[in-house]
Design a protein around this nucleic acid. Structure first.
Lengths: 218, 218
DNA sequence: TAATATATGTTCTACTTTAGTTCTTTGTTG
DNA sequence: CAACAAAGAACTAAAGTAGAACATATATTA
């Protein structure tokens, strides 16, 4: 049976010939298998020849031929493929990135369908999510900075104290702490130099609840 | 198997015969393959004959015959594989989650190999990354809160002003703003109630540079 | 049909680039 | 430390490029 490297190389050569019609060079094999020296490839190939998996025209370059393929995969390869699969599963969550939150238009209107952000799987295990770029400093004391990416779970109601995306007069979307009193909605900033805004409940709609923050440092 | 030029020529000849019904001349092949001398074509053809891909009627002009073509994969399989590859590329990376950053022991020592966090692909396009849970409030004015997940890019040097994971006396790891003066390292908090700590350069090592923050709201 | 022109194919030399081999060093692991 | 795997340098070989001279087919036409 083959070692993982031998298996990987054999499959690469076979695949490469079937796809490109021509035999890969040692340099290409190096890359594919992930080793840094041609001598490594050389010995792998000798081993594959010895085991009758490939044939070589002597004194020719790029003149390998695959004779047969192994029936079984080495265990390590199976393990690796499983990992890749689960990584794929975990990573499958892409959510749309919907422009800037302080913009004066409703969120739906400014969604570009082709911008997505990949988010941590655990972060959005269920429900519908979207992402916004935060503009402005009004939530700075809640650790939400300008240009942070806010992950929003779609919702139309909120509990007091939650940070929400609120749509005011169907025109302006903003990220604030939600507080509903008897006859009014208060949108609380988390920055002392910003003022609390109060609205009649009919003027304000919850568009989503803040579910995560992602920030990148350059 | 074939070299790229051999493959190109073989496919051209095969195609040409199928399309025009007759074998192309050397001049035509020169153009098709992109070389400037007939001798090159000649040797390519000799090689193709040697490998049993084409046959030649001796002492005849334009008298080549294609015997076989390299085995190909069905196109749909190639397409599918490409899709998987690009999905993988887009997929989020998993990086190890390494315990809490304020802990008194060096980071390497507390890494649990089996805890991972999936992060946005764009966030860690290259290099080696790991993640830490932030403990404490010392960076609160930089928008980094208790329990945030800090994404760290492994590094052993930093520029002044960057937020780094600093290891002090090989014992204590901490997240602070890095500032190197003439003869001392200053670790600056971003919280007025914390003090700046100063060390002799020999006592402090950079373990990584803050590359991202991920926060989850429940 | 023989002579000839043109198209086509072959061989040679010289050279550059790419590919493959071998050997030494280095590092790892049991 | 022995056994092994990998990395790298130095080397050898093959592939590719180019041009010229030569050889052979095929077509033309006197």
């Amino acid at each position: 049976m083959l070692t993982p490297k031998q298996y990987k190389l054999l499959m690469f050569i076979d695949n490469s010939i079937k796809e490109n019609g021509c035999c890969p060079s040692f340099e290409e094999m190096k890359q594919a298998v992930g080793i840094k020296s041609k001598s490594g490839i050389h010995s792998l190939i000798e081993e594959l020849i010895e085991r009758d998996f490939i044939k070589k025209l002597p004194h020719k370059a790029r003149a390998l031929e695959v004779l047969r393929l192994p029936r079984f995969k080495p265990k390590d390869i199976i393990e690796e493929e499983k990992k890749i699969k689960s990584a794929l599963h975990d990573a499958a969550l892409k959510i749309p990135l919907c422009g800037k939150i302080a913009a004066g238009t409703p969120i739906e209107a400014i969604c570009h369908e082709n911008e997505y952000i990949t988010i941590p799987y655990e972060m959005a295990a269920s429900g519908n999510y979207y992402a916004l770029t935060v503009e402005g400093e009004s939530m700075i004391e809640a650790g939400i900075l300008n240009n942070d990416i806010a992950l929003i779970r779609k919702a139309d109601t909120a509990e007091n104290g939650q940070i929400v995306v609120a749509l005011i007069d169907n025109a302006e979307a903003t990220l604030k702490v939600w507080q509903k009193n008897k006859d009014e909605i208060c949108l609380l900033p988390r920055n002392k130099s910003y003022e609390i805004r109060k609205f009649h409940p009919s003027r304000v709609k919850v568009q989503g609840i803040l579910s995560g923050i992602i920030r990148k440092y350059i």
